[in-house]
Design a protein around this nucleic acid. Structure first.
Lengths: 194, 194
DNA sequence: ACCTGAACACCGTTCAAGT
DNA sequence: ACCTGAACACCGTTCAAGT
């Protein structure tokens, strides 16, 4: 007599995200997730090999979400406008789900390389159209590094010297887009400022 | 009859850093630290209130180390040269002590605001001399966000699309320094590209 | 098939007792 | 003063037994 499933992979992942945002990555427990979906902790091991695997699945899920938001933000007229919209959507996602965001670049349970690449794809494409395929990777690393750095420092409370943080974000974004665009007009291989 | 101390705060912190780099933040255990200094775990609670307090002390220690390296790198002729040297020293520190570096911007056990500020002070000062006091905070947030983002994405394995990562670092650094310097020549309050 | 209670290992932490 | 063993709570994980 097969036992009726009391939950599903999707429900577990959804509950795990709620628990993660409530308790943080360090406080994240299988018991809390199990309680949230109405089963006992051992049942979760029928669906996920261990806690890290569940956290990694949550990371993949979050990466997918982020990618979807990038796609929506990408529906903008000009390339600079689309890049600005995507950067703001990226930051908004991190503010809404800080612990899931933290998983995206975690040492222990990062999402798969493919999941990360998929989330970043829209940005890459817009940058390619801005700076050309040749400079694309460099420009992407410049912009995404700044974006991740800004957002994660902000989440870590590292911007506490006062001042206008929103303004600093807009300033950084505009400066970077302008700098990347300027680089594309320079001879290939040249490094700005050197 | 007083019992002879078998260890010291400093020895515990030193051992904790070794254990941290070996086992990672998630795997970091009081037992491992205790074993490393030759006592039993309960003894550590005479020195540090709990595991998080020990990790936070390690974060402070790491911030101090990083600050010291910044000061050394700051002994350079020109301001752009000093900024380049500091950025490279920063990245080298993160490569040498990735888990201690991770603590510097962690959600659960960050260093004190003062410790972080002290480590960043030399960079702030050089940027002030480059862009003026008025633009200092913005420029600092631009540069440190990129720096932290680049380094932490690198550590998280997010730069796996190939290409020259060292080159991307030099390119980003030169681009940012040039962009920050250019901004300082624009009217105050103006945002580049807008 | 999926769920459960019981059990085990491991860790953080407390505390009374040792020197 | 500082150290220790014993104990407790809590969690991850396994597994035999239930339906």
């Amino acid at each position: 007599m097969p036992a009726l499933p009391k939950t599903s992979d999707e429900a577990v992942i959804r509950a795990a995200r709620v628990v993660l945002e409530r308790d943080g990555a360090a406080g994240f427990s299988m018991q809390a997730v199990a309680t949230a979906v109405g089963v006992r902790a051992p049942s979760l091991y029928k669906r996920f090999p261990d806690r890290d695997a569940l956290l990694q699945t949550v990371a993949e899920d979050a990466a997918r979400d982020l990618g979807a938001r990038m796609v929506v933000a990408d529906r903008a007229a000009s390339t600079p406008a689309a890049l600005t919209a995507m950067a703001r959507a990226y930051r908004a996602f991190a503010h809404q789900a800080p612990h899931a965001y933290g998983l995206l670049f975690s040492a222990s349970t990062p999402p798969s390389v493919e999941a990360r690449a998929a989330a970043a794809a829209p940005v890459l494409q817009r940058l390619a159209s801005l700076v050309g395929a040749r400079q694309k990777l460099r420009a992407a690393r410049l912009v995404t590094a700044w974006l991740h750095g800004f957002v994660s420092m902000e989440l870590a409370g590292a911007f506490r010297l006062g001042g206008d943080v929103d303004g600093a974000f807009d300033y950084g974004l505009a400066t970077l887009i302008a700098a990347a665009a300027a680089t594309s007009r320079a001879p290939a291989g040249r490094r700005a400022g050197s």
